[in-house]
């Protein structure tokens, strides 16, 4: 199932149960999969038109009236474009608004460089107190949605729209503030979030064939990062690789480095090397940004060599 379809179905369940759960789009209801909610929930689903700033502050106003708004746009327009509205109307004012950015990083594909956020985690991570969550697959997203809705505060959700390979099994238990160790290992730790998690699992299998036992930790919540799990795993294995569909500046690597600042543990990153995106399909974009299974394996070996 496409991630946006799972997202919309979960929202529908939440809206059905609670009339204070509302959804606001900025002319991307179709893209986000939420357009269908309008007919069923006309008093809980609104389109603000192409006016993301207005959408963010309207949501803050609704929140002050007891509503639980979810707002949506493509990642660059849900973050860097409305950074001040998110920072002031929503987070500074302590409003309970969920901000969903779709098609993060290279996932924007044919929309190209203008629509491709390589910096959204960095932008949002620097706003005090906001929570940042990036789901791996539909199982995790489904488990997370009610938890996010119940969390009384602002959360940025970095959502891949299309289908993603399943990493988690049905019955998976989700804790918003606890990273998930997907595979235990002893030689190195790979920290990863979002769409590249399945690639890390693939890479780890190939590494295993070469006798390398990698631990995989899914940091689904990048802020606040689960410092305890991150530090414990890094100490156990002694070397670290971070893998992210984001600029290596400001994203997962930065968050992991901050958590490990007092540890003498090497950290190698596979991520976008401080460049903008460009137009193309995922296989091409993976190649030009280095987000490939081969690069993950090479990064893991580099991390091992630094041990």
């Amino acid at each position: 199932m496409e991630m946006r379809a799972v997202y919309a179905a979960c929202l529908a369940e939440l809206m059905e149960k609670d009339k204070h759960v509302v959804v606001l789009d900025a002319d991307l209801g179709k893209a986000s999969g939420t357009l269908g909610l309008r007919a069923k929930f006309p008093e809980q689903s609104f389109d603000c038109g192409v006016a993301e700033q207005d959408m963010a502050s309207i949501a803050a106003g609704l929140s002050s009236y007891g509503f639980k708004p979810w707002i949506e746009s493509f990642t660059p327009f849900a973050t860097r474009r409305i950074c001040d509205q998110v920072a002031i109307s929503i987070v500074y004012a302590k409003r309970n608004v969920k901000i969903v950015g779709t098609d993060p990083g290279i996932a924007a594909e044919l929309n190209g460089g203008t629509h491709m956020s390589m910096e959204d985690i960095g932008v949002m991570r620097s706003i005090p107190g906001i929570v940042i969550f990036e789901p791996v697959d539909e199982v995790q997203l489904r488990a997370a949605m009610p938890v996010l809705n119940d969390y009384d505060g602002p959360v940025y959700v970095r959502l891949f729209r299309k289908e993603l390979p399943k990493v988690f099994e049905e019955g998976y238990k989700f804790d918003l503030f606890k990273a998930d160790t997907i595979k235990e290992g002893k030689d190195l730790t790979i920290f990863v979030s979002g769409m590249l998690t399945a690639d890390v699992v693939t890479a780890a299998k190939q590494l295993a064939e070469e006798g390398v036992d990698a631990e995989i930790v899914n940091v689904h919540t990048i802020k606040p990062i689960d410092r305890e799990t991150v530090v414990a795993s890094a100490r156990k294995t002694g070397t670290v690789l971070t893998v992210e569909n984001h600029n290596v500046i400001g994203g997962l690597q930065s968050a992991v480095l901050e958590a490990l600042a007092e540890e003498k543990i090497p950290v190698v990153a596979v991520g976008v090397q401080d460049r903008f995106g460009e137009v193309g399909k995922l296989p091409y974009l993976r190649e030009v940004t280095g987000l490939t299974v081969e690069n993950i394996i090479a990064g893991a070996k580099k991390a091992l060599s630094l041990k």
Partner: peptide
């Protein structure tokens, strides 16, 4: 009733409150 100061935003917030 609302945190304001970054100009323009409070007005959208008021619109959200009116919608609420």
């Amino acid at each position: 009733d609302m945190t304001t100061g970054s100009l323009g935003q409070g007005f959208s917030c008021a619109v959200g409150v009116a919608l609420g």
